[in-house]
């Protein structure tokens, strides 16, 4: 069943047309990757889904309901959560406070506590650093915090904007393993990645964005073997 459906979405920043008619779909349980070069409009798409930027036209449907132009804080409550590009942790809050902010939409204290324990189990690094100011953590730790924080709201759909950006190769592998684990727990994932090879390997399906439109889409086997994709995005494959 379709969890998220984006229909002919147009988004502009003033005169710059960042999205020029994007349609895509995330089904329940899927990992969907979104690849595309810098400035293709990937982050803008996530911004339009989460209510940070308002689309000029088109629709965003979540579980069949129209959520276009809902406010970001309402969208979280409906079950969409994001880990931002560049992590977007709150630097002057502690690790634990960042997680609490992530659970802001949940009112049951026991539920928050349980979620927090789960995150500390999943990311032992964070457990050791509960009281540390988030801004003083390493890049990799901040990335884990960003993902953990996004999970604190118990999302049905997790949006990940370049979670492997700037991380060492072994950490990248670890992050991708975590994405799989999270998906195993029943959370659907829309993943933006520069690392196209890994993004295609982990996903069920993928979309290729170029200049604000969907250039290509399909199953990952199909895209991995597509000559255009190979040339433009998988150049680094040896």
């Amino acid at each position: 069943m379709s969890l998220l459906k984006v229909v002919d979405l147009h988004t502009s920043y003033g005169k710059i047309k960042a999205l020029r008619g994007i349609s895509l779909e995330v089904n329940e349980g899927e990992i969907i990757s979104l690849i595309g070069s810098n400035g293709a409009g990937k982050s803008t798409l996530l911004g339009s889904i989460t209510g940070i930027v308002s689309p000029a036209s088109g629709k965003v449907l979540f579980e069949g309901k129209d959520i276009t132009n809902n406010r970001p804080n309402e969208i979280v409550r409906k079950g969409i959560s994001i880990s931002l590009e560049g992590r977007g942790i709150l630097p002057r809050l502690t690790v634990e406070e960042n997680l609490r902010v992530g659970a802001y939409s949940i009112s049951n204290k026991n539920e928050i506590k349980a979620a927090m324990e789960e995150m500390y189990q999943m990311f032992p690094r964070l457990a050791q650093r509960k009281k540390q100011l988030a801004g003083t953590m390493s890049g990799g730790e901040q990335q884990m915090l960003a993902i953990a924080r996004a999970l604190m709201s118990k999302p049905k759909l997790l949006l990940l904007d370049e979670p492997s950006l700037g991380l060492a190769p072994n950490l990248v592998k670890q992050i991708f393993q975590m994405i799989k684990d999270i998906n195993q727990k029943g959370i659907s994932i829309l993943l933006i990645e520069q690392n196209a090879t890994m993004a295609l390997r982990i996903a069920n399906r993928a979309y290729v964005l170029e200049n604000g439109i969907v250039k290509l889409s399909g199953t990952t086997e199909h895209l991995l073997n597509h000559s255009g994709v190979k040339k433009a995005y998988l150049g680094e494959v040896r």
Binding site: G88, L90, R92, E97, S105
Partner: peptide
């Protein structure tokens, strides 16, 4: 304190 650091991120957290 969250809004103080980033209104955008705060709103994304609900």
């Amino acid at each position: 304190r969250s809004v103080e650091q980033s209104e955008k991120i705060a709103s994304l957290m609900g």
